[in-house]
Amino acid sequence: IGSLMYASIFGNVSAIIQRLYSGTARYHTQMLRVREFIRFHQIPNPLRQRLEEYFQHAWSYTNGIDMNAVLKGFPECLQADICLHLNRSLLQHCKPFRGATKGCLRALAMKFKTTHAPPGDTLVHAGDLLTALYFISRGSIEILRGDVVVAILGKNDIFGEPLNLYARPGKSNGDVRALTYCDLHKIHRDDLLEVLDMYPEFSDHFWSSLEITFNLRDTNMIPGSPGSTELEGGFSRQRKRKLSFRRRTDKDTEQPGEVSALGPGRAGAGPSSRGRPGGPWGESPSSGPSSPESSEDEGPGRSSSPLRLVPFSSPRPPGEPPGGEPLMEDCEKSSDTCNPLSGAFSGVSNIFSFWGDSRGRQYQELPRCPAPTPSLLNIPLSSPGRRPRGDVESRLDALQRQLNRLETRLSADMATVLQLLQRQMTLVPPAYSAVTTPGPGPTSTSPLLPVSPLPTLTLDSLSQVSQFMACEELPPGAPELPQEGPTRRLSLPGQLGALTSQPLHRHGSDPG
């Protein structure tokens, strides 16, 4: 009997000691992992102490058991019943959930998450997105703005933001810190809205009876308010094209079509300037034949640059190039080494500058006005007194259609001029006259002087055409309008007829 009692007592005591040691061994194993994590990542002392304290409290609170892992091991129907039991206190005593059906309560219970916070733990920081609604079931918390405590909340209090009033989550206007050990039930806004969409009859009752104890939403960050730039940057990543407008005076608003859609830094370009900076079609017209890549860069430059609305530039004389043409100036200075066709295309550029300027006046029909002061630039669209967005969009579309028509007509005119030049060069190729044979009589004449090349004649003739079109064909006081194609086609051969009437002889060394 004594040996039996000794064996039973010894066996029970050893089993008890073994169970104690097993729990202690698990605790030390998990604690060792936490300390190894702290050492590996070199976490500083204040945060390291918070980690160790939280682990110790969580171990004593749950005995080292992962409740979520245990809950996920059950089937979904059983999980709903378990969640309904775990959140029964909240669902029974909170006013917004009263009167809900059994199915609605089960769906809500599945969406709730339980959070346990030790003292000093910050649940929400200032500036964080308010993605959830919090219900306090135990403990107390404090809300701070800077170093000032603005509120202390306790059991059955609710904090967050009214989700039904805002389409997008706002930002917190303060820090939420736990004063004691707290148990909180939180539900994400997407989950709550999903359940309320499934039960629309409960939705009206819920929003009407929901009383948020403390609204954390920062009202200064609401979209459309003066301080909402940061919020707009976070939620409006896919922005449309940006529009900046110059201020319109009362006198300017009476004149229709007073602005032109141009790229940034293009205030001095012609009315047909689009795409790359520098001139019509993204580059100076005089350098068009020598740089074919300008047409390839036109599309990307047009689509990537934001639109700006600026006044037209001052008018340019008909014979003056659009500006920024070092290529043609070098050719004029060193005409001995340049291609003979460069002079002809220089005359073509003069005609283009004249036609572009006159067509700009035809479509816009307003006098040039000086540029406004820099303080009046970049007025935002949302400022008071601005035109409605639809009106601005319609004006932009009208300007775009005008620019497209202008570009089409300029292309047709350019093709006409090039065809005339090619026809003239085919009839009378460039050549130098040879020395004529002296006559049989004693009164022999001296050799004839060489005839100037055709490109120079073409430049003079085209300059005469531009001056003739600019000065004589337009009646005084009438708006400057571009001439039609047949009129220009008839004027060019008439001007060139006198020049080509002389018999030109080919030089023996000319390969053409």
Rank of each mutant, 00 (worst) to 15 (best):
G127T: 01
D128C: 01
L130Q: 01
A132W: 05
A132R: 06
L133G: 02
Y134K: 01
R138M: 04
R138E: 11
S140C: 10
S140M: 11
S140P: 01
E142I: 05
E142C: 07
I143V: 10
L144E: 04
G146N: 06
V149L: 06
V149Q: 07
V150D: 03
V150H: 04
V150A: 06
V150K: 03
A151E: 01
A151S: 06
G154T: 09
G154R: 07
K155N: 08
D157R: 03
I158S: 13
E161V: 03
L163I: 12
L163Y: 12
N164V: 04
L165A: 09
A167I: 06
R168A: 12
R168K: 10
P169N: 03
G170I: 01
G170Q: 02
S172T: 01
D175P: 01
D175H: 08
R177S: 03
T180L: 02
Y181T: 11
L184S: 01
H188T: 12
D190V: 08
L192W: 01
L192Q: 02
V195E: 01
V195S: 02
L196V: 04
D197N: 10
M198G: 04
P200T: 04
E201L: 03
E201Y: 03
S203N: 11
D204I: 06
D204C: 10
F206N: 03
T213S: 07
T213G: 04
F214S: 02
N215R: 01
L216N: 01
R217V: 04
N220H: 08
I222T: 14
G224R: 11
S225E: 12
T229V: 10
E230T: 06
L231I: 14
E232M: 10
G233P: 09
G234T: 11
R239G: 11
R239P: 07
R239F: 12
K240H: 12
F245D: 10
F245H: 07
D252S: 10
E258Q: 09
E258N: 12
V259L: 10
A261T: 14
G263A: 12
P264T: 10
G265L: 13
R266V: 11
A269K: 07
G270S: 12
S273G: 10
S273K: 04
R274I: 03
G282R: 05
P285A: 15
S286F: 13
P289N: 15
S290C: 10
E296H: 13
E298A: 12
S304D: 11
S304C: 06
P306T: 09
L309E: 13
P311D: 12
S314V: 08
E320D: 12
E320K: 01
E320R: 08
P321A: 13
E325H: 07
L327P: 04
M328I: 13
E329Q: 11
D330P: 11
D330C: 07
C338P: 10
P340T: 10
S342K: 07
S342C: 10
F345Q: 11
S346R: 12
V348Q: 13
S349A: 10
N350Y: 01
N350S: 06
I351K: 05
F352G: 10
F352I: 10
F352W: 13
G356F: 04
G360Q: 07
G360M: 10
R361M: 15
R361E: 08
Q362K: 05
Y363R: 11
R368G: 09
P370I: 09
A371K: 12
A371H: 12
T373L: 10
T373N: 08
S375I: 04
S375K: 07
L376T: 15
L376V: 06
N378L: 03
N378M: 05
I379F: 10
I379C: 11
I379N: 14
I379G: 04
P380V: 03
L381E: 10
S383D: 15
R386C: 05
R389N: 04
E393M: 01
E393D: 11
E393R: 11
Q400V: 11
R401E: 05
T408A: 06
R409K: 06
R409I: 08
L410R: 03
S411Y: 05
A412L: 13
D413S: 05
D413V: 01
M414A: 04
M414N: 11
M414E: 01
M414Q: 05
T416H: 06
T416G: 07
L418Y: 03
L421D: 04
Q422D: 11
Q424I: 11
Y432A: 14
T436E: 10
T437F: 10
P438D: 10
P438C: 13
P442C: 08
T443Q: 12
P447E: 06
P447S: 10
L449E: 08
V451W: 11
V451K: 01
S452V: 09
S452C: 09
L454G: 11
P455G: 09
P455H: 07
T456A: 08
T458W: 06
S461K: 13
S461D: 11
Q464N: 04
S466F: 03
Q467S: 12
F468G: 10
M469P: 14
E472D: 13
E473A: 11
G477H: 13
P479C: 10
L481N: 10
P482L: 10
P482A: 10
Q483Y: 06
P493H: 06
G494K: 10
L496P: 12
L496C: 12
T500V: 13
S501T: 10
P503F: 11
P503Q: 12
P503Y: 14
L504Q: 05
L504G: 09
H505Y: 11
H505W: 06
R506C: 13
G508A: 09
S509D: 05
